[in-house]
Amino acid sequence: MVDMINSIKIKQAVTEYLGLVIALVCLIAVFSLLTKYFFSATTFITIANQIPSAVLIATGMTYILIIAEIDLSVGSVLGLCGAVVGTAIIKWNMPASVAICIAILAGALCGLFNGAISLKWKLPSFIVTLGMLEMARGGAHALSGSQTQYLGSKIDFVASASIYGLSLPFIIAIAIVIFAQFVLTKTVFGRYIIAIGTNEEAVRLSGINPKPIKLAVFVFCGLLVSLAAVIDTSRFQSANPNAGIGFELQAIAAAVIGGTSLMGGRGSVISTFLGVLIIAVLNSGLAALGLRDEIKRLITGAVIVAAVIVDYYRTRIKVNQK
């Protein structure tokens, strides 16, 4: 019996990822054929170095979307956490490790604020996190005096470290994806958040209090954003108070391309990871084609819309296969 059920589950998982993997392979193939230099180790190393922060944020966003909420503040919170790192090192003369800890704390607090306010007063997270988007950006500018703070070698140990040729941020991102996917699919907590996103009232009437679970998801997202901030600060060796503008939309796009439902209850961290990869490959592929930035954005946007339409048909076919 267990074997039979397991084979059903494996089949479900394969069909879930297969489409995304095929899309990714096709993209790589198309760009490799169209341009001379795309299919090379350099391209993939560049992509691997670029995506860790996007992967972390999109992972947090996936969790948030699964519980049928949204977090628009991730980009600003990334800016704020970066500013905290920069300010702590430059103005407060703290060691980088302490600065990183404070930044992570700041990210968690932002998540806590988002969750606590929207849960306490039953406010839509859209509005609360929109407020946080402004507040965190304001905080980032206030802390840094609206200046980009150059940190140089004080912080670059995070991004420059590598194991077997893989950068530490990339390894962290992959580890977080695996961890988050494990929690989502194998643990009690993951089951609860999927159930909450599907039918919160049913969860409540089953005798499970959904509020602490939802709060934890907001905090988890804030934590991941702060981690992304540390990685980006280290990679650029500087803290820019304008860092992360528009990241919330990229994260939502990646999750949605990966098939996460904006209505909650459905999503996968692995799929989101594939979504981030698709956007990254698309970006560098279009750049390799020599297209101007505005054209790149036009195409990327169209791909996002197309992905949602494909997903619509995919879920509809499943429903019809009674």
Partner: peptide, 21 residues
């Protein structure tokens, strides 16, 4: 439907939700 079930989820998930421990 509105207050008890998780309609798009499996029979298994619906039965075990408050007994996961």
């Amino acid at each position: 439907k509105e207050q008890g079930l998780f309609l798009p989820l499996s029979v298994r998930v619906n039965i075990t939700i408050n007994n996961l421990k």
